[in-house]
C-alpha cells in the first residue's frame, strides 16, 4: 500500500483520509473534493493515474488542511506518530508538510515499528526536514529540483532559502559537484531523482541515468510538474517496479505529457495531468 501524506490549502479542513479517487479532472478523498492544484493534490492525482494504469489499488492519502500556519501539519505529524505502526504502509511518501525537524525525527523513528520498514520517499518540505534533521540516510528516494539539489549540497543550510550564494549560482553543468558534495556529507537518499532541464537519477552517489528529451524548458515554470513526477515514482514502485525503473518511467511520462499537452509557461498542472493517461497507454 502506498500512503501519501501532505497538505491542502484549506485552513480548517482538519485531516482528510482515505483512498484517493481521480476521475480525470477531479480528485476525491472520501466525500471531499480536493482542487487539483500544484502541491500534494497534483502528486496524488498523478499517482492515481499510474495506479489505475497498472491496475493496482489507488493510493491511500492523509491530507491536512494547512495554509502555512503549520497547525494542520502538526496534526498530521501527530497522527503519523500514533498510527503509522498500525497502518504499516509498503511505501510512505511525505510531501508538503511544514518542516519541523524534531517531529520528522519522531515520524522516522516510528517507521521502525511498522511490520516492515516502508520504502521512504520525501519530496518538497518533507525532504527539507529530512535533510535538516540529518535523516537523509533513512530515506530511499528524494526528488529534488536543481535548487533543492543545491540545498542538499550545502552542509549547513536547513532550508533552500539559506543556501550559499556560490551554490545557487551553479548551473546544471555542475550537478556532479553538487551530488558529490551532498553525498559526502550524507545528505542524499539512496536514490535521488533530480528534476530539471536534464533529469538525473543518482544511486548511491553515482549518476546512473540522464534524460533531456523532449526538451521542454517551459515545464520548469509550471507549478506541479515536480509533484507529478514524485507521485508517479511512488505509484510505479507500488506496482512492483524497482526504484530505478519507477524513476525512469515517471521522468519520461512527465516530459511526454508536457509535450502532448503542448505546454507553455501558462499551462496549468491539471492540463499536464490530463495528458498522462494518454502517454502511459501509448507506451
Amino acid at each position: 500500500m502506498l500512503l501519501i501524506c501532505g497538505t491542502i490549502p484549506q485552513a480548517d479542513a482538519g485531516l482528510v483520509m482515505g483512498e484517493a479517487r481521480f476521475n480525470g479532472s477531479k480528485l476525491h478523498v472520501g466525500n471531499t473534493e480536493i482542487p487539483c492544484t500544484q502541491g500534494t493534490a497534483a502528486l496524488v492525482s498523478a499517482a492515481c493515474i499510474v495506479a489505475s494504469h497498472c491496475r493496482i489499488n489507488a493510493p491511500q492519502v492523509i491530507f491536512a488542511g494547512d495554509t502555512g500556519s503549520g497547525q494542520g501539519s502538526r496534526l498530521l505529524y501527530d497522527y503519523l506518530m500514533k498510527n503509522l505502526p498500525q497502518l504499516s504502509p509498503d511505501i510512505l511518501l511525505l510531501h508538503y508538510i511544514l518542516p519541523v525537524m524534531g517531529l520528522m525525527k519522531k515520524v522516522s523513528k516510528v517507521t521502525e515499528k511498522c511490520s516492515k520498514k516502508p520504502v521512504m520517499i520525501a519530496d518538497a518540505s518533507s525532504m527539507y526536514a529530512a535533510k535538516a534533521a540529518g535523516l537523509a540516510g533513512q530515506f530511499d528516494i528524494f526528488t529534488p529540483d536543481l535548487s533543492e539539489m543545491e540545498f542538499l549540497a550545502d552542509a549547513e543550510a536547513i532550508h533552500p532559502a539559506y543556501i550559499s550564494h556560490h551554490l545557487f549560482r551553479a548551473e546544471i553543468a555542475h550537478i556532479d559537484e553538487l551530488i558529490e558534495a551532498a553525498y559526502r556529507q550524507k545528505s542524499m537518499a539512496k536514490t535521488v531523482v533530480v528534476k530539471g532541464a536534464i533529469d538525473h537519477i543518482v544511486q548511491d552517489g553515482k549518476i546512473t541515468f540522464t534524460l533531456d528529451r523532449p526538451d521542454l524548458p517551459q515545464l520548469e515554470a509550471i507549478g506541479g510538474t515536480g509533484d507529478t513526477i514524485s507521485g508517479m515514482v511512488g505509484a510505479f514502485i507500488d506496482a512492483g517496479f524497482s526504484h530505478y525503473d519507477a524513476a525512469i518511467k515517471a521522468l519520461k511520462a512527465n516530459r511526454e505529457a508536457g509535450q502532448y499537452a503542448q505546454a507553455t509557461p501558462a499551462t496549468k498542472i491539471s492540463q499536464i495531468i490530463t495528458a498522462i493517461p494518454k502517454i502511459l497507454n501509448h507506451n
Binding site: T7, P9, G39, Y96, I97, S126
Partner: peptide
C-alpha cells in the same frame, strides 16, 4: 512566471512549504 505584456501571473512553481499551494491559488 508572468505574462510580459499583461502582467498576469501565469504560474508559480518550486518550493515545498504548505503556504505555497495557498499562495499559488
Amino acid at each position: 512566471t508572468f505574462d510580459k505584456n499583461t502582467g498576469v501571473i501565469l504560474n508559480i512553481s518550486g518550493g515545498g512549504c504548505p503556504d505555497i499551494p495557498y499562495l499559488h491559488l
